[in-house]
Design a protein around this nucleic acid. Structure first.
Length: 799
DNA sequence: GCAGCCCTATTACCT
DNA sequence: ACAGGTAATAGGGCTGCG
């Protein structure tokens, strides 16, 4: 028997003859790939006795059923809590985890059983939670070497002789083998269909720097390139396979293509195909399949989430416009022998982007996986709510809290934060003060939690209660709730990591790792309030979320009062921030008063040397002392305005705030409009991007982006909710939606420049300039000319 | 027939 | 498929003008 120290990459389970096996895929401290098989962990669920029933008699009843439930191995009464309330419940162990749902259903029908709980926890998660086994983290386990009869692709198959023990202090990540890939499919018309259109190019790059390209010999056959690709994966034996959009496109496509060719896409470590797993993710057993698209939301500044845009944003790689090839042009580029080389190059560049973006994301993904406890290949596809929930589940287990079932609930809105009306115009020397993690700290300060909430019918507990302002929800002061425990640990952990960071060089590997760690902690901390108010949450209790925002409003309102009492002028505020004239002495007093009276910490965030507010809330632009502009909410930062409007507005803000001249800004707009009308502005700057938020058929109204989407669909493009539609407005008569065309279908000459002038440039420009009395007619370089009236005339007669 | 108003649907933002 | 608060546009229905 030996000890094996391993880093957990992936986990799955098998049930053979009703005997469960957990398969832990790891990398040991000698860099060997190992599979550790752990047998004999029996999962379980709970039966909750009805309130008037004795747990003993229920347990007895269940014991008498055992003959019809043969794989139950243990029944006992244990102490647990449900929403903070102590309970005696019956824990029922079952040897075969796959039978648990069925058994729980039968037992929940027993007289005197209120319900069953935790029968909905997957076996592999159950195993990790109960044994404190953490993905992307080191463990130690006693093992014996096993035969490897099943052609499993690892250096060693080991049988666990003990439960693995987590080694929380080891934080480094072993050297992983990473393979990035992207594919190009050939379809003469419309979007490629795996049933008929072949894969013609597969480009791969490994983190050893090895580049490969697999190219189809003809435009019809792809059996060779697919089998070569499979063999290459087998020989490189990656730990991580990464691509962009692979869960939705590449992997399902390749799987079908392989089948069509009589092949199996056996690219995992057990010689079988990728398979769909939880959260719509595709699992490749023994490896971690990562789809970078699942991390695109980490970059809110990137509005159109293409691989090229993200790579460009991260400074990984810039694909020049002349080398960028649109999907629509793949076929032409493939068919034409001269152009094929550029397509090959483009494909490889795509894979270079993939490798580069992986560099930027992987540390974060690994840290998030180990913090939350979801395996590396699941963490990306899990929505924020589920990430928070799995994190909470682990802590619930440690606190003896039962995990509530997911139930369907009716949505009832509740009041949120306060936003102040800004004082329009330009202000000088404005400080922004922020409450530090306001909602988490409110939850800690007032012990707001699902397990401390006291429903209206219940009396006050002896330890006393906190009562939320306005809404009057009560929370017991003692003991500390679930959220307080979890959040204070998170905040503490993050502070500790940040302290360590200060002592490290930003270039060191430790720094990168710890920085990713503190980001992961931050994400989970900040999402906890949102989780609390989410009707899909297992621990949803509306008053919990409602109380948090009530205390938030109370806090900010009092802050404003205190500021005013110190004769500090409040210019604006939103949720947890106030914008005030910078006055160091008074602000110091304000900090003290707030900490004393409100028990929460406020800190200076930044100082704007100048800041511009419009009449609207949530939209402003501040000039920082170093000359940078902070644009918030305005068209400049929105993804659904044409670039022409955004660029102009940005320029106006710069001129107005830095040079403080309106005249120059007006001239700039006029000049720009002249250039636009003269067709001197690039086509790309005229594209408007909007997201499809639901299937096309479900739209009640006709809108430009929806109609453009319909046109794409007609040409064979498969569109789903979440896709971004890029369209332009073309000349002609009628409603905008009749003139909107997908940008890949339209030509520059059919663009309706006057639309861009009146509905994009002018509104974006006036948003700022109207503050200074500038009117529409001041921005137009000349009055509408004759041809325009003629155009209108023709338009009217067409209809 | 159409300008003007109001309302709704839709999207993307802020914290 | 984490929350509510907010701005903005386009479409569509309705009114009233002459």
């Amino acid at each position: 028997m030996t000890t094996c120290r391993f880093w957990l990459l992936d986990i799955n389970y098998e049930v053979k003859n009703h005997q469960p096996e957990v398969w832990l895929w790891g990398i040991d401290n000698n860099g060997r790939r190992v599979l550790i098989i752990d047998r004999g962990f029996h999962a379980y669920f709970y039966a909750i006795p009805a309130s008037n029933e004795k747990p003993e008699s229920i347990a007895e009843k269940i014991k008498q059923m055992v003959s019809s439930l043969p794989f139950i191995t243990n029944i006992k009464i244990v102490d647990r809590k449900l929403f903070g309330k102590p309970l005696k419940v019956i824990k029922i162990n079952c040897q075969d985890p796959d039978l648990i749902p069925e058994y729980a259903k039968k037992i929940s029908r027993l007289d005197g059983v209120e319900k069953c709980l935790e029968d909905d926890i997957r076996y592999s998660m159950r195993y990790m939670i109960d044994n404190n086994i953490v993905p992307c983290s080191w463990h130690e386990v006693e093992v014996e070497e096993e035969q490897n009869p099943e052609r499993i692709q690892v250096d060693k198959v080991l049988l666990a002789k003990s439960r693995p023990k987590h080694l929380p202090k080891l934080i480094e990540v072993p050297k992983l083998r990473i393979l990035g890939f992207s594919i190009i499919c050939y379809s003469p018309k419309g979007a490629p269909k795996p049933e008929k259109n072949p894969v013609v190019i597969i480009s791969t790059i490994t983190n050893n720097g090895e580049k490969r390209q697999f190219i189809a010999e003809t435009s019809e056959k792809d059996d060779k390139i697919i089998s070569k690709f499979i063999n290459y994966i087998k020989s490189f034996d990656p730990d991580i396979i990464v691509g962009y959009g692979t869960n939705r496109n590449d992997l399902p496509y390749l799987t079908v293509r392989a089948k069509r060719n009589g092949l199996t896409l056996n690219i995992d470590r057990v010689n079988s195909e990728p398979h769909t797993s939880v959260y719509g993710h595709i699992s490749i057993t023994g490896r971690a399949n990562i789809d970078l698209y699942d991390y695109a939301d980490e970059f809110p500044d990137v509005k159109v989430k293409t691989l090229e845009n993200i790579a460009d944003y991260l400074g990984v790689k810039k694909i020049e416009e002349r080398t960028l090839i649109e999907d629509i042009d793949f076929a032409e580029n493939w068919e034409n022998p001269q152009k094929r080389a550029t397509l090959l190059k483009f494909s490889m560049e795509n894979t270079e982007c993939i490798i580069g973006v992986t560099e930027a994301i992987l540390d974060f993904a690994i840290q998030l996986s180990s913090l939350v406890g979801l395996p590396l290949d699941h963490i990306g596809t899990a929505a924020v709510g589920f990430r928070v929930e799995w994190f909470l589940i682990r802590h619930a287990y440690q606190m003896g809290e039962l995990i509530p079932k997911r139930v369907e609930r009716r949505y009832i809105p509740y009041a949120g934060a306060i936003v102040l009306k800004p004082k329009p115009g330009i202000h000088e020397n404005i400080a922004v003060l922020d409450f530090k993690s306001m909602y988490p700290n409110i939850m800690i300060a007032y012990n707001v939690s699902p397990d401390t909430y006291i429903p209206p019918e219940e009396p006050n507990p002896p330890s006393g209660v906190y009562i939320a302002p306005e809404v009057n929800h009560r929370f017991r002061k003692e003991p500390s709730g679930f959220y307080r425990e979890v959040l204070s640990k998170l905040i503490e952990a993050r502070d500790k990591v940040r302290a360590q960071l200060k002592r490290l060089s930003p270039k060191s590997p430790e720094y990168r790792l710890l920085d990713a760690r503190q980001k992961a902690i931050k994400v989970i901390t900040n999402a906890t309030y949102g989780y609390a108010g989410w009707i899909g949450a297992r621990w949803y209790i509306k008053p919990v979320a409602e109380a948090v925002t009530a205390w938030g409003r109370h806090t900010i309102t009092n802050t404003i009062k205190i500021a005013k009492s110190l004769s500090l002028e409040v210019i604006y505020g939103d949720t947890d921030s106030i914008f005030i004239r910078y006055d160091p002495k008074k602000i110091e007093k304000l900090f003290k008063a707030i900490e004393e009276k409100l028990g929460l910490e406020i800190k200076p965030d930044k100082i704007y040397s100048r800041i511009l507010f419009t009449e609207a809330k949530k939209r402003y632009c501040g000039l920082l002392p170093d000359g940078r502009l902070d644009t918030v909410g305005l068209e400049v930062v929105r993804g659904d305005w044409a670039n022409v409007a955004k660029k102009i507005q940005e320029k106006i803000l710069e001129v107005v705030l830095k040079e403080q001249t309106v005249r120059k800004a007006v001239e700039y707009v006029q000049e720009y409009i002249i250039n636009l009308r003269a067709k001197k502005i690039p086509y790309r700057d005229l594209i408007i991007w909007k997201t499809l938020t639901k299937p096309i058929e479900e739209y009640e109204v006709r809108a430009p982006h929806v109609e453009a989407a319909r046109l794409l669909q007609k040409e064979g493009w498969a569109l789903t909710a979440g896709d971004k539609i890029g369209y332009v407005i073309t000349l002609g008569s009628g409603k905008l939606y009749e003139r909107a065309k997908p940008y890949i279908f339209a030509s520059y000459d059919e663009i309706d420049m006057e639309y861009y002038v009146t509905k994009q440039i002018i509104p974006a420009a006036l948003r700022i300039l109207s503050l200074f009395g500038v009117r529409k007619q001041d921005l137009l370089p000349s009055k509408p000319t004759k041809p325009q009236t003629l155009l209108k005339f023709f338009g009217e007669n067409k209809k």
